[in-house]
Design a protein around this nucleic acid. Structure first.
Length: 271
DNA sequence: GAAGACCTGCTA
DNA sequence: TAGCAGGTCTTC
């Protein structure tokens, strides 16, 4: 679920709720495999008594910089979320100073809380974050041209550009009118330029709308305030199989590309 | 590349 | 009841 805009929304809300600057009084791990690579006991001991100095984000990773010098790296995977109130599927709870509790929630138990000395060990494997200045059009075009792969799996590859997931990849390709199975080195300058701009655009709009949530079931994305994100009505391709393309009226088609459900307009996005 | 693993819960 | 889900990882 959470891609760059959802993680950014959650990070901003945690800051707004005043999580930065608070001390961690206690840690409760409800699903032990949430934590790695340390044992739960060591993990809790390392966190207890430290202060969360800063909350930041890079790609889909969220980082809590601790006063101990270590960093908690959190990846929300498919269904992770945070809340200030307890609820079903809480996997890890931080009791913070000032009477605040922070609940990490994940229906599917896809774990990922890492305590590291240096976040670069993980971040160095990522390409530039899609919404930073380090992600430039030149870099993007070069990266696409020097490979010979289908464009969709390539823009989902976090080692090339960090932040896109399945929803925003489909949205960016729809916006740039590029078929998801086009080979990366077959794309011209204009097409790559359009795709670059579309990636920045769909993610920026996603952040502005505080993320995307599809449907309204309990497993969908929720931000820290329990809201489902305002981007749902803005989605043009993802999850719209069979529905008319907003640009040309022909039905959006759903196919599978590199094992991921993929939605596109066969008449706007030609091979 | 592709397929399986990690998991639960919703939908068809 | 089977299939599918916003994401990585590992192993062919």
């Amino acid at each position: 679920m959470p891609e760059l805009p959802e993680v950014e929304t959650i990070a901003r809300q945690l800051r707004a709720r005043g999580v930065e600057g608070r001390q961690i009084l206690s840690v409760r791990v409800e699903w032990p495999r949430t934590v790695e690579p340390l044992s739960v006991a060591v993990f809790c001991k390392e966190l207890r008594g430290t202060t969360i100095d800063r909350i930041s984000r890079e790609g889909k990773w969220m980082m809590f910089s601790l006063s101990s010098g270590k960093t908690v790296m959190i990846h929300l995977r498919m269904a992770g979320s945070f809340s200030m109130e307890s609820g079903p599927h809480d996997r890890l709870v931080l009791q913070l100073s000032g009477g605040l509790s922070l609940y990490y929630r994940h229906t599917r138990k896809f774990r990922r809380w890492k305590l590291v000395d240096d976040p670069q060990v993980i971040l160095a494997k990522l390409g530039p974050d899609a919404l930073t200045r380090r992600f430039t059009q030149n870099y993007f075009c070069e990266a696409m041209r020097e490979r010979h792969r289908m464009i969709k799996p390539l823009i989902l590859d976090q080692s090339i550009v960090a932040g896109l997931g399945n929803i925003y990849a489909d949205e960016a390709l729809w916006e740039a009118k590029i078929h998801p199975e086009r080979l990366s080195d077959s794309l011209g300058d204009a097409e790559l330029g359009n795709l670059f701009k579309a990636i920045k655009h769909v993610l920026t709009i996603g952040v502005r709308n505080r993320g995307t949530s599809l449907g309204d079931g309990k497993t969908n994305y929720r931000d820290v305030e329990g809201e489902s994100g305002g981007h749902r009505e803005k989605v043009k391709a993802y999850g719209r199989g069979g529905k008319p393309c907003e640009r040309c009226g022909n039905p959006i088609k759903k196919i599978v590309v590199a094992q991921r459900g993929t939605h596109f307009c066969p008449s706007c996005q030609t091979i």
